[in-house]
Computed example of a mutant assay.
Amino acid sequence: MNERKSMPLNYAEFWERWKEHGDIEAKKTLIEKHLPIVDYVSGRLAVGLPKNVSKDDLASNGVMGLIDAVEKFDYKRGLQFETYASWRVRGAILDGLRQGDWVPRSVREKAKKIEEGYQQLEQQYLRTVSDEEMSKHLDVSIKEFQHMLQEVAVMTLCSLEDPIREEESETRLSVLVDDKAKNPDYKVREFHLKESLTKGIEKLTEKERTVVSLLYYEDLSLSEIAEVMSLSPSRISQLHSKAILRLRGSLDKQRDLLMQDD
């Protein structure tokens, strides 16, 4: 018995012990072994959040997401638990933030105005609009507009990684790289969403595309991106906010069109 306890076990054996035999110790081990996922995800989400948001609270919500992932994961499907757990952890943290009403209504309203402004002007001019044009549209100065972008940064940080639909792990970003077959209706919607997001990214400025690429594809933090691009973290935050608000406008427009077709 002691020899068995001291023998190294791979994750497959832990999953079998937990899922097939209800071994609570195996479950605890799986949770403990994957705690770095919580640290990684909560650390990324903490960037740019208001100071009143406790990192400990983010981590606590993340741990609840990890526990949920361990309980619901089907290890027999051959999927990567790390990816699945990351989605669950991220979702639990975001749910906790939403329930805590961490974004003031005034900030939400500013984000909506900017998003609608980009949507209206780019549809009118059929091109990427400048900060000067947006400032004029919003009837604010360039400095005030940039301050608005800084304020809404906390809302836009995770927008591409939010689930497309409730109770699903697929995100807006994932449709760019996930070609798994679904039912025909799903595939049609996925195609239009992918096309809309791709076109939206193409309309971004070069710097905005670089920020999106480094953040969501290369997994760099905003501070690391600032070093790579030789810009200040606040400027990177502004570029990210503009990019996400533009993309959200494109996706919302596509969603409305799809709903009209139903």
Rank of each mutant, 00 (worst) to 15 (best):
E151C: 07
L35F: 12
A153I: 00
F14Y: 04
N61K: 03
P184L: 01
L157V: 14
K28V: 14
T171Y: 02
I37K: 06
R246Q: 08
L45I: 15
Y84Q: 09
I24Y: 06
L66F: 08
A85P: 02
D139A: 09
P163E: 11
S54V: 10
D252I: 07
N52W: 13
E132G: 13
A153R: 01
Y125K: 03
S169E: 05
A243S: 06
M229Y: 02
R189A: 12
Q99K: 07
I236M: 00
S232N: 10
E122T: 13
S54L: 12
E122D: 07
Q119F: 15
E116I: 11
Q238T: 07
E115Q: 10
R77V: 14
L176E: 04
L126D: 04
R248D: 01
L9M: 13
L160T: 11
E13C: 01
P163C: 12
W102N: 13
R90A: 02
E3G: 02
Q99N: 11
F73V: 12
E195M: 13
T29V: 13
G62K: 00
D179E: 14
D68S: 15
S223P: 07
Q99A: 11
L215I: 10
K112H: 12
W18E: 04
S135R: 09
I24T: 12
L215V: 10
D57N: 12
G96C: 04
E202H: 15
Q146N: 15
A243R: 02
D261P: 01
Y84C: 10
R90C: 04
I93D: 00
N183G: 04
